[in-house]
Computed example of a mutant assay.
Amino acid sequence: MTTTATRPRTLDLLRVALRLDAVVTGANGAAYLAAAPLLTGLLGVPSGVLRGLGAFLLAYAAGVWLVAARPAISAGATEVVVGANLLWAAGSVAAVTTDRFDLTTAGAVWVLLQAAVVAGFAALQLTALRRR
């Protein structure tokens, strides 16, 4: 049973988790767009791919921010965000394990770290959603 005393805090946790996801994702996307030529050598991902990922991440971040900005956060929209985050995390691990790119050691570490952070966002969002 959700009481009025705990409900605002739970909604705040969900809103904060979504906004944090949007900010981190947007910053990552902006970095990929702005620094793609520099990051190519460091990570081992072609600059064109980084630019494409950057544009996608900026659009995704805007969508996540909009989900968080609604007066009443949609459970369905939050579930889509959680699912997308889990797919991103799984895809990141797959990119490393299948040698999709010629990742450097730093690139492989970065991709796996990013997967862990995104999976963490998904877990936090799902936990906050279930507590509503």
Rank of each mutant, 00 (worst) to 15 (best):
Y32H: 15
T78V: 06
V23K: 03
L87H: 03
V64A: 14
G26E: 11
T97L: 14
L112V: 15
G83Y: 01
D99S: 12
A17C: 09
M1P: 11
L33F: 07
A22N: 08
R15E: 09
D12E: 14
W110R: 12
V81P: 02
A116S: 12
L66W: 13
V16N: 08
V118H: 00
V80Q: 10
Y60R: 05
F56L: 13
L112C: 05
T98P: 03
T98L: 15
I73G: 13
T10S: 05
L11R: 10
A122S: 09
L86T: 05
L50S: 06
R100Y: 09
T78C: 04
G120A: 09
A84S: 13
L50E: 12
A62C: 14
V64F: 09
A34N: 00
A5M: 06
A61V: 03
L112M: 14
A69F: 10
A89H: 09
T40G: 15
L87W: 10
R132P: 03
V109H: 10
L38H: 02
T6A: 12
A59Y: 04
L126W: 13
V16W: 07
L113S: 15
T25E: 04
T78Q: 04
A55F: 09
A95M: 11
I73A: 07
T40N: 09
A90H: 03
L124C: 13
A116R: 04
T2Q: 07
L33N: 00
L112S: 06
G63T: 06
D99W: 06
P8V: 01
N85H: 01
V117S: 06
V118Q: 00
L58N: 02
L38R: 04
A35I: 04
L43A: 07
A17G: 14
G29M: 03
T6F: 05
G52S: 15
R100C: 01
L86M: 12
T40W: 11
A122I: 05
L87F: 09
L112W: 03
N28K: 00
L39W: 09
T4S: 11
